[in-house]
Simulated assay, not measured.
Amino acid sequence: MTTFNRRHFIRNLTLGSLAGLVGIHVQARAITPKEMEGPYYPITPQKDKDADLTQVAGKKGKAKGTIIDIFGQVFDDQGNTIEDVTIDLWQANSFGKYHHPHDNSDAPIDAHFQAWAIIQTKAKGHFRFKTVFPGAYPLNAAQQRTPHIHLKISKRGYHSLLTQMYFPDHPLNQKDGLFRRKTPEEQALMTAKTTEITNQYRYDIVLAKVV
């Protein structure tokens, strides 16, 4: 191979590799579907809103129920990760009770469950929080909402997203009115994925840029 051909080959190989990397980086992703807020967005002030919902600052006890770990990344619709995104999340406790004065169900209150968190994404859009597997509600009702976690996601320059995260293969999913209204593709985007670690889930979020 001549010197010219060798240089030409290396140049094309380098450009092709860079193009492949760029292609991976900007691969389009489907936007996470929206969902209703629900009636129990927290209204009672609380100081502790960190990423560990299994305990409350100043109390020694732990929340009841199965402890789960949820992690993921936030992307834009072109596949780029987004740092410093605010994720506002809340859920029912393991008995299916919300920490909200309007939840008058007979399910017990868990004084050691934080119930509400506001966290920020880190480098490359990573986030993680620890919580308990939410109970279905209302307690003992003929029709119950399938376990889920509410999320409000926001960052300047992107459309805010209000959604709900569901759990894979839960028997109540296909009986839940809101879940069933979604297409199979939308259901997949709103459902967390299991990992090789027990009680650990991955959930990625995709936001749309403001044009």
Rank of each mutant, 00 (worst) to 15 (best):
Q200N: 05
Q200V: 08
D50W: 04
Y137I: 00
P138Y: 11
E196C: 00
I153P: 00
P134S: 03
G20A: 13
V206P: 07
R180S: 11
Q143I: 12
E83F: 07
K47G: 12
F9A: 12
R128Y: 11
A115D: 11
F113N: 05
V206A: 01
G38H: 02
W116D: 00
V211W: 10
A117C: 07
K64M: 03
K152C: 03
Q144V: 06
K193L: 10
K175P: 00
Q164L: 08
D106L: 14
Q174F: 13
Y41A: 12
K209L: 09
K34W: 11
F113K: 03
K47N: 10
R180P: 01
Y203A: 02
T44I: 15
F133K: 01
Q91G: 01
K124H: 13
E35G: 06
H126N: 10
K59L: 15
P184F: 10
E35H: 12
K193D: 04
H148Y: 06
F9C: 07
D110K: 04
K182H: 08
K97N: 11
I24C: 12
F127G: 02
L15A: 14
I10S: 09
N199C: 08
G72W: 01
D204A: 02
H126I: 10
K47M: 08
K49T: 14
V206Q: 01
H25E: 01
G65F: 01
V210T: 15
G58D: 01
P42H: 06
S154Q: 13
D50A: 08
H25W: 08
D88I: 07
F75W: 09
P108N: 04
Q78T: 15
G61S: 11
V26I: 14
M190A: 06
E196L: 11
L139A: 10
K60N: 12
S105N: 10
D84Q: 14
K130D: 01
P134Y: 02
I70L: 12
L151E: 07
S160R: 13
T54Y: 09
H99G: 06
H170W: 04
P42Q: 09
M165S: 03
I67M: 11
A63F: 08
D48G: 06
